[in-house]
Design a binder for these strands. Structure first.
Length: 425
RNA sequence: GUGAGUGUAGCUCAGUCGGUAGAGCACCGGGUUGUGGCCCCGGUGGUCGUGGGUUCGAGCCCCAUCACUCACCCCA
């Protein structure tokens, strides 16, 4: 028996990893453009951090965390999401003491013990931003605009941005009471799951897929009619800014975030191409969170993008530059010639040319491999070339080749590959 | 945690009525003393997921088990 990877943990092979890093670079670029700076966070935190921020009774905290005790008996958990760590770091490092508005982004793996399925893995990667300290609707609109922009920027088009207003700690309970009351009056029409949820987490009933429950949900009171005047004004201001800005969205009162810290604006970017796990990015406002974790009473909001899901949405013809060598070195003939080829390859690499090595087999085989690897040039160095102190420089695309002095091939390649400008500059 | 589906070559899959395995792609070699793609020829590669049972005989039938996938749930 060979040792296999852990369930829900995957390898990302060359090719896909290249696409991954290119997309990541583009998103990083957008984050920078919007003024966010990267924060590098630990993967491991005290379990208490997530219990206090996400909510003790959330699904994630109750049964999806990789929690264990370290050798001193302290309960630690692999992070199931990024916001809790970012806020913890913000407080711990007194980031509120400088500019009152702090913009952070993070990237990396998150861990949740769930049954794997399409678009859902136990280790998955997120890129997320946190904008802490800005209570204004402009902050919400700005963050939504960033999300809208970067989805388009990486080439993903068929996504829907849906937003909702969740109210805040002052006005949401009144809505939940109203909803519970309504659901209680329709108990006989609800499915077993929803009967359970009606009390504990009534908003979950609203996006049940059972037909009878959909009918019940259709007549349910909308949260948009129940939030307080301030929350409503905030939401309307955000919508007005999005409209002015031309950001397309729909208002979906059924959006319920699974983490307790969200207030007011909550949103999801979804695609029907993703299967059941259809959210590619999601986030919202979390104004009470920093204070709840022992920090100052400052507002915040953010979102996270699911990298695996985003990559699944990329069009097949996405123009991703290759990460394969542009030059292949072929050494043929005697041991001396092959040695010379090896040394030349090494010298070229040290000067910045990506060189693949032919593997020392037959000339035909080495050329075939160079072709399959997509090399634009092949350098052939055999006994004949060694004797004359030159090499054959073959242009694979134009099917032409020339003999050039061995000492000059580096400069020639740097120029042809467009790599010499950085040297001059 | 619940349900369904699928496990045959590196990959995608055929495999009839039970008679101890095949294709395409990939990989390797040759056709060209040292020149790639296309074409032609040849080759490597399989405890048919695993264990048990039925049978003269099991990839195929039965039982168990494991893995993977999708869905519920939950969420990025």
């Amino acid at each position: 028996m060979t040792v296999k990877s852990v369930k829900g943990f995957r390898d990302t092979l060359p090719g896909e990893s290249n696409v991954w890093r290119r997309v990541e670079e583009r998103i990083r670029g957008a984050f920078h453009t919007w003024g966010f700076q990267e924060i590098l966070l630990p993967f491991l935190e005290r379990t208490e951090l997530f219990a206090r921020s996400l909510g003790e009774t959330t699904e994630v905290v109750e049964k999806q965390m990789y929690s264990f005790q370290d050798l001193r008996g302290e309960s630690l958990s692999l992070r199931p999401e990024g916001t809790a760590s970012a806020v913890r770091a913000y407080i711990e490092n007194h980031l509120d003491q400088g500019d009152p508005i702090v913009r952070l982004f993070y990237t990396g793996p998150m861990f949740r013990y769930e049954r794997p399925q399409k678009g859902r893995y136990r280790q998955f990667n997120q890129m997320g931003i946190e904008l802490i300290g800005d209570p204004s609707p402009e902050a919400d609109a700005e963050v939504l605009s960033l999300l809208d922009y970067l989805l388009a920027h990486v080439g993903v088009t068929d996504v829907t941005l849906a937003i909702n207003n969740l109210g805040h700690a002052g006005c949401r309970p009144a809505y939940l009471d109203a909803l519970r009351g309504y659901l209680a009056s329709s108990r006989e029409d609800l499915c077993a799951d929803c009967l359970r949820k009606a009390e504990q987490n009534p908003m979950r009933v609203l996006d049940c897929k059972v037909e009878a429950c959909i009918a019940v949900a259709a007549g349910a009171p909308s949260i948009l009619d129940h939030v307080c005047a301030e929350c409503r004004a905030h939401f309307e201001a955000v919508r007005a800014l999005l409209d002015l800005n031309g950001v397309k969205y729909v208002v979906d009162p059924r959006i319920v975030r699974g983490l307790d810290y969200y207030v007011r604006t909550a949103f999801e970017a979804t695609s029907s191409r993703l299967g059941a796990q259809n959210a590619v990015a999601a986030g919202g406002r979390y104004d009470g969170l920093v204070k709840a974790l022992g920090g100052p009473d400052v507002p915040g909001l953010g979102f996270a993008i699911g990298m695996e899901r985003l990559l699944a949405l990329l069009p097949e013809d996405a123009d991703v530059p290759s990460d394969r060598p542009s030059v292949a070195m072929v050494g043929a003939g005697s041991n001396e010639a092959r040695q010379a080829a090896f040394l030349l390859a090494d010298r070229l690499r040290r000067s910045g040319v990506a060189v693949g090595w032919g593997g020392g087999r037959s000339l035909k085989s080495q050329l075939r491999r160079a072709d399959k690897a997509g090399a634009s040039y092949v350098i052939i160095l055999g006994d004949e070339e060694l004797e004359k102190d030159e090499v054959v420089l073959r242009d694979m695309r134009h099917q032409s080749q020339e003999r050039v002095p061995r000492a000059r091939v580096g400069d020639i390649l740097l120029r042809r590959l467009g790599l010499d400008e950085t040297v001059k500059g």
